[in-house]
Design a protein around this nucleic acid. Structure first.
Length: 431
RNA sequence: GGAGAGGUAUCGAAGUGGUCAUAACGAGGCGGUCUUGAAAACCGUUUGCCUUCACGGGCACAUGGGUUCGAAUCCCAUCCUCUCCGCCA
């Protein structure tokens, strides 16, 4: 969400930004909010003068009553009553205009960073850099669920019966590997100086509105029936929501947090053939990193954060690349974002495993977070988030890249302590 | 789930229908005096948002409604916290 003052003073910049994101349908919103803002200020001017007068007279009534001058007090009451209708009407219109204004403001996308490449959709995202050799072995890599099955590590059939499509049972060593990756990712971030957190997995509607756009909310969030609670789609939601309405002391910045949570997503929309198995599911687990910092520091944190993901994946011998989101693929709240994609030797292409975003002050403004500066002024902090590791999807990359020709899977050194010291997984039956 | 108490500024906390909410008082922050420096003490200062060139004005006492000329204060609903009981991993 943008600052209304900014829109008022820079309407062309806001329009240009909408065009860069190929959301021309939203262009009329700019004139609409400027018109609503104008009307809002007109109403305020009038209604506030009326209120000022009423407040003044009411105070006089108080004085007269204290002195027992009832008649004079009644005369003033009558005077106030004359304006009451107009005040009520204007107050009602003010409420409506403000509501409409707020609704439209939520739809106008955040101003993207000048460095963001311009493009229509995800097909125009830009590969920035590769890390590690994208290696294709000379034997066939099976589909990830087949690899897992070779270790008796997954049961999709039961999950279908119990919970439906989009759920899974992980079993045995695959389940253990899933936990090992999370534990390793957690300790990796703790070693970087981040504070480990376990947040609530359900949050109130006003927090949901503060951290994400309406369209994301509709496509992602599960609501608990009969209560004002939603299942989180990522721990970012409860970790940023943590600061709702809070005044933050400047010397406490930056907050560098790493949170674990299960994530629940409706995943509305078509699922392609490559999204079978545990690639796109309604429930998964994730270790996340969150930074709340001064505005001038957010780009430096952004750079640091995506590099942490690269470092983590490289420590498990998984080749990755950084893919920068183009303007059209960037969610409305984001200033800049990139994906870290892992190499799939089976598909011979990269696929998304991490998503790093700088939200600027958009979430902070929506949540009414503020920082008290050393000079006494208050300002909005910037918020960032990035995936550390999100199994089971990241297990796809892990298994495909560590699979050997004999069907066994090497456990990288960094994960061995979390796997009871074992160095490899051996398939149940040799194939 | 039942009973009770409560939610006021950065924090603690007073205020129970008006004329100290321009939010008492205390702490913290900031500035100063004193000091070689620091601590202590003392003096001053310090809520946010909107609007205005400015003077000023409006709004906000968990949130949303209501009563009233006037609500932190009274009424209703919702959310949250604490205490006790019940249930529970």
């Amino acid at each position: 969400m943008l600052d209304m003052k900014f829109v008022r003073e820079n309407p062309e910049a806001v329009r240009e930004n909408i065009r860069k994101k190929f959301q021309d349908a939203k262009l009329p919103l700019v004139d609409a909010v400027i018109e609503l803002d104008k009307r809002n200020r007109e109403i305020k001017g009038e209604v506030e003068a009326l209120r000022a007068n009423r407040n003044k007279l009411s105070k006089q009534i108080g004085g007269l009553m204290a002195k027992g001058q009832r008649d004079e007090a009644e005369a003033l009451k009558a005077e106030i009553a004359k304006e009451a209708d107009r005040v009520d009407r204007l107050t009602e219109e003010e409420r409506q205009v403000e509501q409409e204004l707020h609704k439209n403001m939520l739809l106008i996308p955040n101003i993207i960073d000048p460095s963001v490449p311009i493009g229509k959709d995800d097909s125009e995202n830009v590969e920035v850099e590769r890390f590690g050799e994208p290696f294709v072995p000379d034997f066939d890599i099976p589909y990830h669920t087949d690899i897992m099955e070779s270790f008796d590590g997954i049961d999709m059939d039961s999950a279908g019966r119990v919970s439906g499509n989009g759920f899974y049972y992980l079993m045995g060593n695959i389940a253990r590997l899933h936990e090992a990756v999370l534990a390793y990712a957690r300790d990796f971030m703790i070693d970087k100086g981040f504070t480990f957190c376990i947040p609530p997995f359900m949050i109130h509607g006003n927090v949901v509105e503060g951290v994400m756009s309406q369209s994301d909310m509709d496509a992602m969030m599960y609501k608990i029936e009969g209560e004002d609670l939603y299942l989180i789609g990522t721990s970012e939601h409860s970790m940023i929501g943590k600061f709702i309405g809070q005044q933050i002391k400047e010397d406490e910045l930056p907050y560098t947090l790493t949170s674990y949570s299960p994530c629940f997503r409706k995943e509305k929309g078509a699922h392609g053939i490559e999204e079978r198995g545990v690639y796109r599911i309604h429930q998964f687990e994730k270790q996340e990193m969150i930074v709340v910092c001064k505005p001038e520091d957010s780009m430096a944190w952004y750079e640091k954060m995506w590099r942490y993901s690269v470092e983590l994946f490289r420590s498990m011998d998984i080749p990755v690349r950084q893919l920068e989101c183009c303007s059209g693929d960037l969610a409305d709240l984001k200033v800049k974002s990139c994906d870290i994609e892992a190499w799939s030797p089976r598909q011979k292409k990269y696929f998304e495993v991490c998503s790093c975003s700088n939200l600027g002050d958009a979430q902070a403004r929506r949540l009414k977070m503020r920082v008290k500066g050393a000079d006494g002024r208050t300002y909005l902090p910037h918020t960032l988030n990035n995936t550390v590791a999100a199994p089971p999807r990241m297990l796809i990359a892990f298994l495909e890249n560590n699979l050997r020709e004999d069907g066994s899977v090497a456990i990288p050194k960094v994960l061995q302590p979390y796997m009871g010291g074992i160095t490899e997984l051996r398939p149940k039956k040799e194939s």
